[in-house]
Design a protein around this nucleic acid. Structure first.
Lengths: 97, 97
DNA sequence: ATAATGTTTAGACAAACGTCTAAATACAAT
DNA sequence: ATTGTATTTAGACGTTTGTCTAAACATTAT
């Protein structure tokens, strides 16, 4: 199942999910650990994690009762490419200003 | 009115709006010109343009009856910073693998 | 087997979103 | 002033999204 730019941006367009990634940037964390940083139910967090997982932005690994989530940045390449494409391939005629 | 990362990502998370930006990347265009590239009503396009405008991703200039839209890439800086922050400031301990 | 803990799934609900039609506004030309 | 063209605004409608509660599933310990 290929992860699309669309999925990445949709996943990233929610502030809770961005904050989750900022947490996971430091080190992998269980769903419960992540939950301590938010004022929402575990069910809601689980939903956000599944969106991130579906976009390929996190990977999960079951360890006994716990499920550890880990950030996966490789998916952001397409996004970076799109943005730098927009930034770089502009109208070169305007360079003289 | 400050444009936030949130607005940028929300605006960018719709494929029509991304395609609009790809068009405007080439050169400024009137709303009508943009419309020729899509199979949706002008009203819907106008809505998308207003989202982009509100996010600071496009600027508009009225020229007689026409309104010319122009891409504004400077707003993407925050986004770039966020992404490179996520990409770069990982756990350095893992570098030895 | 039972209980306890960690996490997800199912179902519901309000708010936000993308789209449409119809009406309104703005400007140019007659 | 009227008509015509370009665009936006208003209002409606179905879909998606973020959230919740309640129930289910999975694993470990008793």
């Amino acid at each position: 199942m290929i992860k699309m730019l669309q999925d990445t941006l949709k996943a990233l367009s929610d502030p809770t999910r961005r904050k989750i990634l900022e947490l996971l940037k430091q080190h992998p964390m269980s769903a419960g650990d992540i939950g301590t940083h938010f004022a929402m139910t575990g069910a809601t967090l689980s939903h956000h994690l599944s969106v991130l997982k579906n976009a390929g932005l996190v990977l999960d690994e079951k360890k006994g009762t716990f499920i550890y989530y880990e950030i996966n940045t490789s998916v952001m390449e397409d996004m970076l490419n799109w943005v730098t494409g927009i930034l770089g391939e502009g109208n070169e005629k305007d360079k003289k200003d």
